[in-house]
Amino acid sequence: MSFLGLGGGAPKLSSEQKVQAAEAELDMVTDMFNRLVDTCYTKCIEKSKGYSEGDVNKNEGLCIDRCVAKYFDTNVKVGEHMQKIGSSQFPGRR
């Protein structure tokens, strides 16, 4: 479990720190799942007809599959690009 390479090589963490890192990773995975549900719903679900059916139809289903795949793709590309341009300058506020 090493989302974004977190925790991978870091040596000699205390027990508390290791559990905290695992918790941070869990929170991040959960957050990404929630954002995916939200974003892909907006991109893929047809609600123009006032929800004419409770099922996810074929078009919607295909759209969801690709939306998730492209979101992961975007996540990886952004991470790589940030490393390339030097993400160290990132948050600005510190």
């Binding site: 991109k43 759209c63 690709r66 939306c67 795949a69 492209k70 793709d73 590309k77």
Partner: peptide, 11 residues
């Protein structure tokens, strides 16, 4: 902002 074509599986 950038992705709205869902006919392909990769960007």
């Amino acid at each position: 902002d950038c992705v709205s074509d869902f006919t392909t599986k990769t960007l």
